[in-house]
Amino acid sequence: MNKQPMSLLINGETCAAEVEPGRSLLDLLREDFGLTGTKVNCLEAECGVCTVLVDGMAVNSCSTLALQCRGKSVTTIEGLSRDGHLHPLQAAFIEHGAVQCGYCIPGMIMNAKALLDEEPDPDEATIRAALAGTLCRCTGYQKIVDAVAAAARQMRAPAHQAKMAAGAGGA
C-alpha cells in the first residue's frame, strides 16, 4: 500500500501515523489510536454521529480524510474531560438525562462544544439550528437542548471562567 507519514495533534498530543490516502479520519481515530468514543454510523455525512473538532470546527470524521488533517488539531470526546473532571457539557448531559441509547451523544456533545466556543450565550433556536446536523434516533432532543443551554450557563459563570483562566478547566 501507499502509506504516507503524517502527524497531527489529537486531544493536544502530537501523534504520528502512517496513513493510506483513502482512509477517513474516523477510521484513523478508532483503529490506530483506539479513540472509540467517536462512533461509526451512517458513513455518509448525513447523521453527524461521528462529529469531531478539527482546528475547533465541527466536522464529520467519516467524510474527512485523515491526510486532510495533517498538521491540524483534532479534538474528540475523549479530549473533553480534564484531570478526571467532566466537561460542563458532559456533566449537563448526565444531569438532564439527555442520554437515551447514547450512540449519538459523543457527536452531539462535540457539535454543541463547537457552538458554545463560538456563541457562549445561544438562544434555543440557535442551539436547535446548530444541533440539526446531528441526528438522535431516540428523538430525545428536548433534554439535549436543555442540557446544552444549562452547560452554556455554567460555562459563562464566573467560577468556570476563573478556572479556565487558571488553566485548570475543561478544554
Binding site: 455525512a45 478539527v54 446536523g133 446531528t134
Partner: peptide, 9 residues
C-alpha cells in the same frame, strides 16, 4: 447545505 459539520468544510 447539510449541517454545521458539512458547511464548515
Amino acid at each position: 447545505i447539510g449541517g454545521f459539520q458539512v458547511r464548515n468544510v
